[in-house]
Amino acid sequence: MAEPESPHADTKPRTDSSPWNWLLLVPIVVPLLTPLFNHDEPRLAGFPLFYWLQFAFILLGVVTTTLVYRMTRSRGRS
């Protein structure tokens, strides 16, 4: 474990906080709300709602993570 010489080297203070991060709560909370998706009807292509909606949550996760990544990246790099 190579110890760094000085823990407070003179670089400008950084942070990864951003209001966009709050958006990530959506794909964390929504897939856990069982009353939302614990239904058989309506069916989609033979799939009960329980299954197709949870598949749709995967897409929700991808969209929100991609969005937050893009928005926070431009901020961090400037």
Partner: peptide, 19 residues
């Protein structure tokens, strides 16, 4: 259906990793 927990489980994990 109880076995389908694997799907929400692997949706929830990535935002957590990300943060």
């Amino acid at each position: 259906a109880a076995g389908f927990f694997a799907v929400p489980y692997t949706v929830v994990i990535y935002p957590l990793f990300f943060l």
